[in-house]
Amino acid sequence: MWDPAKYVQFGDYRQRPFFDLTGRVLPDDPRQVVDLGCGPGNLTATLAARWPDARVVGLDSSAEMLATAEHHRQSAPGLEFRLGDIASWAPSADTDVVVSNAALQWVPGHPELLAGWLKALKPGAWFALQVPGNFTSASHILMRDVAESPKWAGKLAGVLRHDEAVALPAQYLEIMLDAGCAADAWETTYQQVLTGENPVLDWVRGAGLRPVLAALPPDDAAEFEAEYGARLAEAYPATPHGTVYPFRRIFAVARKL
């Protein structure tokens, strides 16, 4: 289960990559826009505001996220939200823009799916994706170290995906070019200054730590958090200005030729 309130706790930081991504998507009067993994819907609503004449569909597999997204439905006449699995989605003949922001890392085998989606898109259609590129950062390495320790390995075996959760920017670029697209791929590391007591732990609770917490009963989850949180506090010490958390993101945008 997702916690929409926790997910948007660091709203400005979580939203910035979305706007950096969609700023490179430049269609002419799209008729249908799809947001794969729309989450709480606040960013999907900005797509509807940008293209008010389009039908904008947000797709997500979390009923909790979509319950929050429903609050945005009235913000634009063409905005709607659907419950569904990204892996089962396919573009329709009138799909002009597809956006997936911080979602495909949860979909095993998504590079192969991406290749199929791009081939199915009509000429002139756009596909834009953004995924985290921080699986080798201290926050994720420490999470895996604790999960793989003798104390937790039996309870958390197979819970954390990391080796092939995302592709490299060059791999996304190659997939897009092979599918007959003009494409652009890049990466950015945001130097985020977080505040609060152990704010990096608060950050990862919103997404990356979710599978661990979901796999453990409440008492075990609290114990895991305490152990992991102590390691995070050491790896990301507070400064007079806050706690600096480098956050690498991977972007790729394609336009079908």
Rank of each mutant, 00 (worst) to 15 (best):
R82H: 08
L83W: 03
L83D: 01
G84Q: 01
D85H: 12
D85E: 15
A87H: 07
W89A: 05
A90N: 06
A90L: 06
P91Y: 08
P91N: 07
P91V: 02
S92R: 13
S92P: 01
A93N: 10
T95K: 04
D96P: 01
D96G: 00
D96T: 01
V97I: 06
V98R: 09
V99K: 00
V99G: 01
S100P: 05
S100G: 12
A102W: 04
Q105F: 07
Q105G: 09
V107P: 02
V107S: 04
V107A: 04
V107Y: 05
P108N: 03
G109S: 12
H110T: 07
P111T: 06
E112K: 11
L113I: 05
L114T: 10
A115M: 05
A115C: 09
G116I: 08
W117A: 12
A120G: 02
L121M: 11
K122W: 00
G124W: 02
G124R: 00
A125L: 00
A125M: 02
W126S: 04
F127S: 08
L129K: 08
L129V: 14
L129Y: 09
Q130R: 07
P132I: 08
G133S: 07
G133C: 06
N134H: 12
T136D: 15
T136R: 15
T136S: 14
S137F: 14
S137W: 11
A138L: 09
A138S: 14
H140D: 10
L142P: 03
M143E: 13
M143G: 10
R144C: 11
A147E: 14
A147N: 11
A147L: 11
E148N: 14
S149V: 03
P150D: 10
K151N: 00
W152V: 00
W152T: 01
A153S: 12
A153I: 02
A153C: 03
A153P: 00
G154L: 07
K155V: 02
K155W: 13
V159H: 04
L160T: 09
L160N: 09
L160K: 08
R161E: 11
H162Y: 15
H162M: 10
H162Q: 13
H162S: 14
D163Q: 13
E164A: 14
A165R: 11
V166K: 09
V166P: 00
A167F: 02
A167C: 12
A167W: 06
P169S: 03
A170Q: 10
Q171S: 15
Y172Q: 01
L173G: 00
L173A: 08
L173H: 11
E174F: 01
E174L: 09
E174M: 06
M176F: 13
M176C: 14
D178W: 06
A179D: 11
A182I: 12
A182E: 15
A183I: 09
A183G: 12
A183K: 10
D184R: 15
A185W: 08
W186E: 01
W186C: 00
E187D: 05
E187M: 07
E187K: 13
